[in-house]
Design a protein around this nucleic acid. Structure first.
Lengths: 156, 156
DNA sequence: GTAGGTGCAAACCTTTTGCAGCATG
DNA sequence: CATGCTGCAAAAGGTTTGCACCTAC
């Protein structure tokens, strides 16, 4: 799906739900859809400010909350008190592996994994709305470089 | 395993790794091991202060970091910027289902699920240290009572 | 005796909020 | 033209840190 098309979907959704479509929101949505990488609120703010220096941090947070609520964006705890967001619209569902040495996030997907979760949920009479699976560990390159003291804290 | 026994294990591990075994640490470890519930750093501080009012918040955080690093305790993001800890020593690993209506946390475990994760990790050359699987949805009782508006926000 | 640990308070960082003014529908 | 949105700056909340003192080994 093309970015303009995606942006259109967001716009319509917001309008339909009684939100206004402001310049700031268009800008923020555009910036958020522009990448398929994970980004922090602050990084998004920076990107927005490259296009219009007047965007405020508060507006970014407020818009991000709206987008998350609407399901266009998904927030992930980084484990150090912050969050990273990810553009979800038009993406396949996937899970995450987080390298505890370098902080890199890898995505993966396994149908069987999903199936077993459904099963476990059914056993408890639970209806799944969403789930979050995160695997923490060492990625390949950090493992091969593990002879030295490591690089904990390199990520952020 | 008995609490005293568990505490002994922690003590030995810390000593072996060049940490000192102070009164505060004994106190904090005792308090942390005393419950199998999830607790915040602040709740732990309260519990410690019931035994000795002089324990400082900083020491609780510092000790919690040591315990987490050593694998005796596990931290879970609460999604609102905070963390909850869970006493892990001598416990079976389990995952969590969180009811988005009533906030109840259900624990479950599925060996096959773990196996698939190992597999997925291996494919990426990733070595797992730990993982966190959380399934969000409606629990059985909230599903049968779903005719009304629900009770979102009950949890925390 | 000397690291390492502790307590305090201040610093930090990300996120949220109050408020007055602005712009959209 | 009413309401929702924005920007600013300040507040909030959880966590970390600098520093002087203390204590386990």
């Amino acid at each position: 799906m093309k970015p303009e098309q995606e942006q259109r979907i967001v716009e319509e959704h917001l309008r339909k739900n009684g939100f206004r479509w402001t310049n700031q929101r268009a800008l923020i949505v555009r910036s958020a859809l522009a990448t398929h990488e994970h980004f922090t609120a602050d990084e998004l703010l920076d990107r927005c400010r490259q296009l219009d220096a007047r965007v405020s941090r508060a507006t970014v947070y407020r818009t991000l909350a709206v987008l998350e609520e609407a399901g266009f964006v998904e927030g992930l705890d980084t484990g150090d008190g912050g969050r990273k967001f990810e553009h979800v619209l038009g993406h396949e569902h996937h899970d995450h592996m987080v390298c505890t040495a370098c902080g890199t996030i890898f995505e993966f997907h396994d149908v069987e994994l999903e199936r077993r979760q459904e099963l476990a949920a059914r056993r408890l009479g639970f209806r799944i709305e969403r789930h979050s699976l995160r695997i923490y560990g060492r990625c390949q390159s950090c493992r091969s470089a593990r002879k030295n003291g490591g690089s904990r804290g390199a990520a952020k």
